[in-house]
């Protein structure tokens, strides 16, 4: 393979910048990590096991759901189904970055994807809408988020009692508010607004009537279908 076929070069300085840029949101991720660590040891995981799970799975909602299913025994197929359903949004998130990712050499492409999660993806996807290409935030920002998730889990398993009730501080809403701010900061054309309305309706319908954890994928695909048939007019 020639170098020229992969024109995207990750810039180390920008990776560091994006690491710092996502530090504020990472502080909140520490709080979630602590809540997870506490939940994990209450369900009987050893501290090191909880840390290992956070390190290798690095997907908060699915980890909470998994330890919720914990007991003397764990049924494997339901565990796989729940983890896959909750994390299936990654499939769409990764696909949406493909136009940029295809310009990275495969090793870097799949390396960077190890750190793909909601917050850094939201930044990258939103900037891509405004014509900026930013995979550095997936790597640098992802590293900040991963470290925060680890530090949080560590705090939770050893001093979980410190943060008994993160909800009373509104901390459970950090990610929701972050993602909403990202969406509203992006481009808003009639086409996008129609897609959002369709996505919202489909997500709600799935949330109420379809199996649990399917609403994100259903809503996102429904919104995507609007884009499939309604193409943006190219500026003349």
């Amino acid at each position: 393979m020639s170098v020229a076929s992969y024109p995207y070069q990750l810039q180390p300085a920008k990776v560091r910048l994006e690491f710092v840029r996502l530090l504020p949101i990472s502080l909140f991720v520490v709080a979630f990590g602590a809540a997870f660590g506490l939940a994990a040891i209450q369900k009987g995981l050893e501290p090191l096991q909880a840390l290992l799970m956070s390190a290798t799975v690095f997907a908060g909602a699915s980890q909470f759901a998994a330890v919720d299913m914990w007991g003397a025994q764990v049924s494997v197929l339901p565990l796989i189904a729940v983890v896959f359903a909750i994390n299936s949004r990654h499939l769409l998130m990764g696909a949406s970055l493909y136009p940029m990712l295809k310009e990275l050499p495969p090793r870097q492409r799949y390396g960077v994807l190890l750190l793909l999660t909601d917050a850094n993806w939201a930044v990258s996807a939103q900037e891509y809408q405004s014509g900026r290409r930013n995979l550095e935030v997936i790597l640098g920002g992802g590293l900040a988020l991963w470290l925060a998730w680890m530090i949080g889990t560590l705090m939770g398993v050893y001093f979980g009692r410190l943060l008994q009730d993160p909800q009373s501080l509104g901390l459970d809403m950090v990610l929701g508010c972050f993602l909403l701010a990202m969406a509203l900061g992006g481009k808003k054309s009639p086409r996008i607004l129609v897609a959002w309305a369709v996505a919202a309706a489909a997500a709600l319908a799935a949330y109420w009537y379809l199996p649990p954890h399917t609403h994100v994928v259903v809503g996102a695909l429904a919104g995507g279908v609007v884009g499939l048939f309604w193409l943006e007019k190219k500026p003349v």
């Binding site: 949004r89 769409l92 998130m93 696909a95 949406s96 493909y98 136009p99 295809k102 909601d118 939201a122 996807a125 939103q126 891509y128 809408q129 929701g176 993602l179 909403l180 990202m182 969406a183 992006g186 086409r191 996008i192 897609a195 959002w196 369709v198 996505a199 919202a200 489909a202 997500a203 709600l204 949330y207 609403h215 994100v216 994928v217 259903v218 809503g219 996102a220 695909l221 429904a222 919104g223 995507g224 279908v225 609007v226 884009g227 499939l228 309604w230 193409l231 943006e232």
Partner: peptide, 25 residues
């Protein structure tokens, strides 16, 4: 193959992911 139609699909899908997470919340 990333045609303009596919590109349009994944772009509207991307911001729809955010809406689909937030609205049921």
């Amino acid at each position: 193959r990333i045609s303009p139609r596919v590109e349009s699909f994944i772009n509207t899908m991307a911001s729809s992911v955010l809406i689909a997470i937030v609205v049921p919340m």
